[in-house]
Amino acid sequence: MALINLPDPEQLASRILRGVREAVASGLNLLDNRLADARSRSARLLASLSGERQMNEGHLVGVTGPPGAGKSSLVSAMIREWRFSGRTVGVLAVDPSSRPELGGGALLGDRIRIKNSSYDEGLFIRSLANRNQMGGVSSEVWPMSWLMLSCFDVVVVETVGVGQTEIDIAEIGDTVCYVAQPASGDTIQYLKSGIIQIPDIFAVNKCDLGAPARKTAAEISRSAPRQDRREDWDYPVCLVSATMNTGIKQLNDQIDRHRSFLVGAGSLGNLRTRHHSAWVMRLLKEEFGTFGLELAGGSATISQRLGEHRSCQFEEYERIRTQILSRFKSDNSSSSITKKEHPNEQAVV
């Protein structure tokens, strides 16, 4: 039996909220852990963290784009700017895993590209493999980004855009920024694919290339507003160069402006609540399958329960989990067929 000392979630939460780096790291490890005990503690940790600050403050920014668009260098430049203005930054950098039949390992190389050479207390980078999960982003990214949001001013989730990823990233970030590469087929494909409905802001990188960058920006500008996803948002297209460090402040300003827009429209809270629900549903499905969801009354019932507990979805998640686990146990048990009516009891596995 492995000796795994899982931390006490409530104590950990108070240290995380004080910004203790060791606690942040330990919390991220816990959220990443799939042992049943860790799952319960994760839910408690999230419940303890989801106070005022996480709901109302901070900014969760998703950055995606095709391979080679220079996302990491751009994120690095954006971080410099944020740090310059005194904001702390947490980064979740997601890299692909190799296919399961090839061992499922991963090389997480983004740190080296993102980080500035000097040591910085106000910057925290965690790299993650996508672990071949459905969609482009592994389920751990959601809670990990919320944990970071509880203690950093800006949280960036950086992923390689490969179609499905953009859909996932839209369910994580308050603001989604797509990094386009000038004169590349990827961007054209992207424009055609319909996924263009997702990003709120476009950054055309390598604008030092001149004409090709302006052409790409113009193509995106022509396509983006037509989608009318949110009526009052103008889908800005920014010309930037990560290597020349131009246009970065303007891009960050647009990202801030988008957050103000969401707050002004009263939709930031709703957006985050929706993301929480989507993740709970996804996680329950991942852990227990459709059969497990049925044991808790089916997805419609679960959605309803989450809706009724908007401000404490993680507590509700843990209750649903416990309920399903105990149902599993009683279904698997040959001697007892008693159905538990009070699923709040602690499940022991």
Binding site: A25, S26, L28, G103, L108, R111, I112, Y119, R126, A129
Partner: peptide
């Protein structure tokens, strides 16, 4: 063989390595 590997390249201070070990878990 299936590890998730963080490699930060050369010329790191012991402090940077320990920091990466912490942040990366």
């Amino acid at each position: 063989v299936g590890f998730e590997v963080v490699y930060d390249g050369i010329r790191l201070t012991p402090q940077q390595i320990a920091q990466a070990a912490l942040e990366e878990g």
